[in-house]
Amino acid sequence: MLKYIIKRTLWVIPTLVGVLIILFSLTYLMPGDPASIMLGPRATPELVEDLNKRMHLDRAMPVRLGYYLLGVAKGDLGTSVWSGHKVSSLIADALPHTILLAITSLGIAALIGILLGTFAAVRRESPIGGVVTIFSLLGVAVPDFVAALLLMLLFCVQIPLLPALGAGVEGDLVDIAVHLILPATALGIGWVGYLSRLNQESMLDVLDSDYIRTARAFAVPKRAIAYRYALKNAVIPSITVIGLGVGKLLGGAVFVEIIFSRPGLGKLIVDAVYARDFPVVQGGILVATILFVFANLIADISYAFVDPRIQYD
């Protein structure tokens, strides 16, 4: 297993190098002249040239790639063309909002989803099965940005209960929590549906398995079988899904952040795209991608710990 973990971890390096190359070539191709954006239309040619030199924009592409990689290695993601702030500090400001949103919504969704799925499988006759079906249908039918719009329509416009925009006043925990409710729900509904259905199915499979029959034959009580033995087996598929989900939400809460105007990473990237602020786009995507890659890595490794059977090559 150790060998697998090392191999899996080392594989991240060439992948990230590839990511950097793609990112660089993407923004290289991006239309818009940074100098004229930064300095305005009335800049003198001397000023433009000076700036281009400072940002190495006058050099050939491979040289610029080299400078870029060097900067990234030093933790320098460049400077925003618009605001002049360091990209790294912009990201550092945005990231906590995204992380809070991702972890809250997915954490609650995972808890509800796994509980619902398990109950639905253990008590087959109870109406919980119906609840699972409704959630999974909702999860399929209503993508997160549609859910966000509908929730906003319902709870901010029709029944003005909850705040529509922003992330709350810094330091005011209640305000922050209140501002979190709608975005987290919009993101979480789909995950509840998916995880509850996944867990219900795998739990049903597990409860029918031979080793559960063995435990019954040795008089292990039914409740212990369901919640101690079977749950661990049944939860395995959900772990990967949750790991993928964290990564996805860290980089992909774009729509919800835009709709609810939360100053998170997704909003930072999209706003930068609108403004053609390419160092911010580049840095934002890089950080989102790194988070995604490491979330996947952690999911894979934790999977290896939970399921000792996995064969690795």
């Binding site: 990230l16 590839g18 990511v19 980089g251 786009v281």
Partner: peptide, 20 residues
Amino acid sequence: LFDIVRSFPQIILALAIVAV
């Protein structure tokens, strides 16, 4: 190649490409 492209959060990659 597959792993690089899969490393990006999909929607972010898509919007970056459209932006370019």
